[in-house]
């Protein structure tokens, strides 16, 4: 079962939900930190890093002896990552998406591919939790290839939690695609509601079953709950606005460990997302 934890708005408690959910499961679980721009899950789980692997993207390398500057590659490349300016083709590797088109189109076989590092994958362990973190190098613009590398580590049959980046664009989609259920975390404020409606639009587009966790209930008003009721979206969990939670979080402690009275909330959340994921299973059966 693959559960993605996402939110339109940043800072609503996505990582809090992901790490506490991971810690609340009796048995092995994998946590994949797909917020590769700002990965934070292991700051709370304190897992010892067991291995680090580089992630690369194949970018073109031009053989000067073979290139005659015909610019076929430049005409194909949609990203302006390779072009001939009357000379042999120049490569601007930071713009390359790694589609491989230039290599295929070159009539003289002058282009090969060479790996360009874009970030790392770290594997850490904390009790029963295996944490796989993608960490993009500072200055690298494209997160999706790294997110796909993180997700490439999801073994079959494992229970996996994906901590998604905030927002609704490409990195979020790269994370949520293929999940069995999505938990959207929000807060009961105008910003929280607005960004939730955007996230709902995106997740509906992807056709994955989803439910909402409302964090800091009590800080704002009832608009998020009213919206969910109107749209028929299940509210899977309410986390109260409790200063002790904020303090535990600020020093990198797990809520279920610092405040054991909240443990049952997360075991209940497991049950609720299990039911959501089963819904997807049934829908797939029917489609077949």
């Amino acid at each position: 079962m693959i559960i993605a934890v996402a939110s339109g708005k940043g800072g609503t408690g996505k990582t809090t939900v992901a790490v506490n959910l991971a810690r609340s499961l009796a048995g092995p679980v994998h946590l994949f930190d797909c917020d590769v721009e700002e990965p934070n899950a292991n700051l709370f789980l304190h897992g010892a890093v067991e291995r680090t692997d580089e992630v690369t993207l194949p970018v073109p390398a031009v053989d000067a002896a073979k290139c005659n500057g015909c610019n076929e590659c430049g005409r194909l490349c949609q990203y302006h990552a390779i072009a001939s300016f009357g000379s042999q083709a120049l490569v601007f590797s930071e713009l390359c998406h790694g589609c491989g088109g230039c290599m295929l189109v070159c009539p003289r076989g002058a282009i090969t591919e060479t790996p360009r590092r874009i970030g790392v994958l770290e594997t850490a362990r904390s009790g029963d939790i295996t944490i796989v973190t993608g960490r993009i190098d500072v200055g690298v613009a494209f997160a999706p290839p790294l997110i796909r590398a993180v997700k490439g580590r999801i073994g079959s049959g494992v229970t996996a939690i994906l901590d998604a980046p905030p927002g609704t664009s490409c990195p979020v989609i790269a994370t949520v695609t293929g999940a069995d259920a999505v938990i959207l975390v929000t807060e009961p404020t105008p910003f929280g509601l607005h960004d939730l409606t955007l996230a709902v639009e995106t997740v509906r587009e992807l056709g994955v079953p989803f439910g909402v966790v409302v964090n800091r209930v009590g800080m704002g008003d009832g608009r998020v709950h009213a919206y969910c009721a109107k749209e028929g979206i299940p509210v899977l969990l309410d986390i109260p606005d409790d200063r002790r939670i904020a303090e535990a979080y600020s020093s990198g402690r797990l809520l279920v460990e610092a405040l054991p009275e909240y443990r049952t909330l997360f075991t209940g959340l497991w049950q609720a997302v299990g039911e959501l994921a089963a819904k997807k299973g049934r829908a797939t059966e029917v489609a077949r």
Partner: peptide, 15 residues
């Protein structure tokens, strides 16, 4: 309006 690679596009225009 390019997010990246503006200089390359402008250079192409000059050439």
């Amino acid at each position: 309006a390019a997010a990246q690679g503006a200089g390359i596009q402008a250079a192409e225009a000059v050439v």
